Simulated scan of single mutants.
Amino acid sequence: MPSSEVSLALFVPLIAKTDRVDDVAGFLGKGYELVQAEPDTIQWFGAKYDDHTPPTFLILDTFRAEEGRGAHLTGKVAEALLANADALLAAGPEIAKAVVLANNVRDTSAGVKNGLRVLLEAKPETVEAVREFLTGALPLVEDEPETLVWYALEFPGTNRFAIVDFFADDAGRTAHLNGEVAEALFANADMLLATPPDVKKISVVAANVKV
């Protein structure tokens, strides 16, 4: 299946107050309902980090153009998030704009349940090399049938990158972690990265995927 034609993203970690975790999950469920009315928000994921302290969630959404991203940032989901931030969140939210370097989106009609969030900090002299590594990883991902959704992101103006991917079950996630992309990333980490890859397992709370 061809990669989805998205070029921009928003990456929004949400640190929940310890007594409001269920409420944040409920908020993401309502966000899913709202985002369905946004035709220019192409993919939207709300997820929770597994076994993470403090309890942390993530919103990831993608767009074909800046017009769509701008509309989302002034839309009902963002409005509701900011209106409820003080009550639900321990900090933030910190909304990071990202460029989609490469992506692959397969048929997700059966649902996505598990995911990975990988943060990468390039050495100052290896930013271009990390960018090339991530774009060059796409053919390897396309050969992984159980990796249903995969994004390589760059945060402009920084030396930071991210990989976010989603799977139907933990078997698919495990296969990816044991696959060629992960093997190549860790084999090149000392050469390319200022710090080791920060890998977190996540679970999908809600998702709306257009292709």
Rank of each mutant, 00 (worst) to 15 (best):
H52V: 12
H72N: 05
N84A: 15
L58E: 00
F57M: 01
R69C: 10
Q43K: 10
F63M: 04
R69E: 03
A80V: 02
G70E: 12
K48M: 14
F57W: 08
E66I: 04
T41P: 03
L58G: 00
A78R: 07
H72W: 04
T74Q: 14
R64V: 15
G75H: 03
A85E: 05
Q43S: 13
A65S: 15
T62Q: 01
A87P: 09
H52C: 14
D40I: 08
D40E: 14
A47G: 11
G70T: 13
I59N: 02
R69W: 05
G70N: 13
I59C: 06
K76L: 06
G46F: 01
R64F: 12
L82S: 11
K48A: 14
T53E: 13
W44Y: 14
D51C: 12
F45W: 11
A47M: 13
G75S: 02
H72Q: 05
E67W: 13
K76I: 03
Y49K: 10
A87T: 13
L89D: 01
P55C: 05
N84L: 13
D50G: 10
L73F: 08
I42M: 05
A87I: 04
L73G: 04
F57E: 02
L89G: 00
I59V: 15
L60D: 05
D50K: 14
K76G: 10
E66T: 08
L89W: 00
G68R: 04
A80S: 12
D86T: 15
K76E: 14
A47R: 03
E67H: 15
G68P: 07
F57I: 06
K48I: 13
T62S: 10
W44L: 04
D61F: 01
T41Q: 07
D50N: 14
P54I: 11
E67M: 13
E67L: 14
G75K: 00
G46T: 05
D61R: 07
A80C: 06
Q43Y: 08
I42S: 02
T56R: 00
T56M: 03
F57L: 01
L89A: 04
V77C: 04
T56F: 06
T74C: 13
A80H: 05
D61M: 10
H72M: 10
F63C: 02
F57D: 00
R69N: 07
R64I: 12
Y49T: 13
A47W: 03
I59D: 01
L73Y: 00
G68T: 08
P39F: 04
A78P: 05
D51E: 11
G68N: 07
P55G: 06
L60V: 15
D61A: 09
A83C: 09
Q43D: 09
P39S: 08
P39V: 11
V77D: 02
T41W: 01
V77M: 10
D40G: 06
